[in-house]
Amino acid sequence: MKKISLILLILIINTLHSNMSFADKKKNIDHITKNLRCLICQGQSVYDSQSDFALSMKKLIRIKIKEGNTEDEIYNFLKEKYGEWIVYEPEVNKNTIFLWGLPLILFIFGGLLIIRKVTIK
């Protein structure tokens, strides 16, 4: 068994090394535009879209990054123009508290049920 694991380990590390050279940090702009909804294209992100709107948006974000704006500042700027709808990751506020909270509450509740089930004598 240990031999098999060792061979596996060597194999995995080998394949990794051939792939490593591409590994590089993701560009910031990609990260931001992936989190933005293209408002005129159904269900696409700005990153994926080639529409005029999305292309201008990418350009503007590039300019904003150069000017030294942080990711959050860019999101806030766009939210002010287009509303919360434009970001794919809704921030936690009174409108979205249950969006983020409900699954976690259910998880805790489920955990309690299981504990009760297995500890009942």
């Binding site: 408002l39 005129i40 005029d52 709107f53 201008s56 350009k59 503007l60 123009k81």
Partner: peptide, 13 residues
């Protein structure tokens, strides 16, 4: 010319 000003105004097209 590049559409960025319209984005600043909040336009979509």
């Amino acid at each position: 010319s590049d559409g960025t000003k319209s984005i600043e105004l909040g336009a979509i097209g």
